[in-house]
């Protein structure tokens, strides 16, 4: 009668302790092997700024930084992230590292419902960390895994383009002074 039920429950019940550095702080949490990183972040750590849109890596809403690189937190099991450094929209916001992107998104209204926005910002930051002055085409290409139903994308591309130029200008100015 309850044989299968207990087997399932046993498996579901069995948890593993993972240790992470989330937004600069050491945390540990008990997760089931089947829990994804996005579920761990949202449910266990209450970092709800990271969103689950498709749970198959197609929409980009769940992007976070794992050891400094953008990854789909819906495609990573929480146990796989053991020992990793995770930065979410909350941490990136509080550290101020994407303040210029956020300000430019705000100024240009490069968001409407905001559900895709954390993922967009994580991906924009990833792009700008790798390519200093991407063309509009390169920006669109880099965002090709980030789905937004609201904006039509143009304002997002504009905002990233503007920030790329500002950052380059600042770098060049800094370089000139050195």
């Amino acid at each position: 009668m309850n044989g299968l039920g207990e087997t399932l429950l046993d498996e579901a019940d069995e948890t593993v302790r993972v240790r992470l550095i989330v937004n600069g702080r050491k945390v540990n949490c008990e997760v089931a092997p089947r829990d994804t990183l996005v579920d761990c972040l949202r449910d266990k750590l209450e970092l709800t700024g990271t969103h689950a849109g498709c749970e198959m890596g197609a929409c980009g809403a769940c992007l976070v930084q794992l050891d400094g690189r953008a990854v789909h937190s819906c495609l990573v099991f929480a146990v796989q992230a053991d020992g990793a450094r995770i930065d979410t929209i909350e941490g990136l916001s509080e550290r101020g590292v994407i303040a210029d992107l956020q300000a430019e998104f705000h100024r240009r209204n490069a968001l409407q419902c905001g559900f895709c926005t954390p993922g967009m910002l994580v991906n924009a930051q990833e792009l700008l960390s790798r390519v200093a002055q991407p063309s509009r085409e390169e920006i669109r290409d880099a965002l090709s895994g980030n789905y937004c139903r609201c904006t039509g994308y143009e304002a997002i591309v504009d905002a990233i383009d503007a920030v790329a130029k500002e950052r380059s200008k600042a770098r060049n100015a800094g370089g000139g002074g050195a």
Partner: peptide, 21 residues
Amino acid sequence: VPRPNAKRLLAGRGRYVSDLK
């Protein structure tokens, strides 16, 4: 003028029903 309520969303501080506990 920009939307005053958009800053929350940009900081990951939206309160969607899917976030609610």
